[in-house]
């Protein structure tokens, strides 16, 4: 090799150190990526478990009045992360006739408060931000972005079963969580 093409020893040393610094940064970047992406991903990604909704037995229907909403509480077994337990849930049930039933989720579609039934005015009212819903669930006043959420329901042998679900609040479209 030509003597002149070889860099001076001092320059070579500088180049070697520069190269090592570059390599250290390279290793640091790669290791940060290999660990950083999963670590951040763990905290950001969804840990939703299988959304297998099961029919819960709510109650015997012939005890329910026709035409007026009733809040019914029932036990359903649920899974949240590593907890397996039976939860007490409530729904609003409106019997419209024999075999004809509407079941509303008790959660206001605006920001997730539990609404109540105003017997005097015959409408649902949310105590948090004064959204008002008609008996059929449509929005009458207030900030609610969509009508009340209905839940799948069926009547078998005089027993009402409901598939209890929760929906995203604050959005115009109904989306299961």
């Amino acid at each position: 090799m030509d003597e002149r093409s070889r860099p001076a020893p001092e320059q070579a040393e500088m180049q070697r150190r520069g190269f090592l610094k570059w390599l250290v940064s390279g290793l640091a970047v790669i290791n940060s990526l290999i660990l950083g992406i999963p670590f951040v991903g763990t905290l950001l990604s969804s840990t939703a478990t299988r959304g297998k909704a099961a029919w819960s037995r709510v109650g015997v229907v012939d005890k329910l009045p026709v035409g007026a909403p009733v809040e019914v509480r029932f036990q359903s077994s649920g899974t949240e992360a590593y907890y397996h337990r039976s939860d007490l849930n409530s729904v609003w049930v409106i019997m419209r006739g024999p075999g004809d039933v509407t079941v509303f989720s008790p959660i206001c579609t605006h920001l997730g408060c539990h609404f109540t039934w105003n017997r005097q005015h015959g409408r649902f009212e949310c105590p948090c931000h004064a959204s008002v819903f008609a008996l059929d669930g449509t929005v009458l006043y207030g900030p609610a972005p969509r009508r009340l959420d209905t839940l799948p329901a069926k009547i078998e042998n005089n027993v009402l079963y409901v598939e209890y679900k929760r929906f995203q609040v604050g959005t115009p479209e109904k989306k299961v969580i």
Partner: peptide, 15 residues
């Protein structure tokens, strides 16, 4: 809770 972390949390097995 550790079983949950290991099987149902993304990259929980790695952590």
């Amino acid at each position: 809770s550790i079983s949950f972390l290991r099987t149902r949390v993304p990259f929980g097995w790695l952590i």
